[in-house]
């Protein structure tokens, strides 16, 4: 199994120190990312989390292995330390990832209560199989 690739570090601003992130279910990228249909060309290749000014900040890198542009839809779900949702389901956001690009996406939690997160991703061009196999249209956040 692929080792942890998440470098999740919560900065303790007041102490000037750092502590490892305690996700609700561990710290692998796979455990943080929910794919709506398997993505063939796009991949969340890196993920970092840090707590600054009492706000959780997350940075992900999405890698496009294809030479063609790929459309990505994503959104973050914000959770407390017990895994309960602390914010409304956010809007799906469209993002174009150019061919062979490593796109860095940075977000800040919209609430001070967020201690953990989940990332949902979907790419309409790549959803050929996976947990929503055969129902690409239904699973797509694209209207």
């Amino acid at each position: 199994m692929k080792r942890l690739a998440v470098i999740a570090v919560f900065g303790l601003a007041c102490l000037g120190g750092v502590a490892p992130a305690q996700g609700a279910d561990g710290g692998t990228i796979a455990s943080k990312v929910g794919e709506l249909g398997r993505m063939e060309y796009l991949k969340v290749s890196d993920m970092k989390a840090v707590r600054r000014d009492n706000l959780l900040r997350v940075q992900i890198t999405v890698t496009n292995s294809s030479s063609d542009n790929q459309q990505l839809y994503y959104r973050f779900l914000w959770l407390d330390s017990d895994g309960f949702s602390v914010w409304n389901e956010g809007p799906w956001k469209p993002e174009i990832i150019y061919g062979k690009q490593d796109k860095i996406i940075s977000v800040t939690a919209p609430t001070f209560k967020a201690a953990d997160f989940k990332l949902e991703v979907q790419s309409p061009n790549n959803s050929t199989s996976g947990p929503h196999s055969g129902s690409t249209a239904d699973s797509s956040p694209y209207r």
């Binding site: 839809y73 959104r75 389901e89 956010g90 809007p91 799906w92 956001k93 469209p94 956040p141 694209y142 209207r143």
Partner: peptide, 15 residues
């Protein structure tokens, strides 16, 4: 889904 990406026209929309 009220959170879905809306691309009906180029006007400003819900997304």
């Amino acid at each position: 889904d009220s959170n879905a990406v809306e691309t009906v026209t180029t006007d400003l929309g819900s997304t």
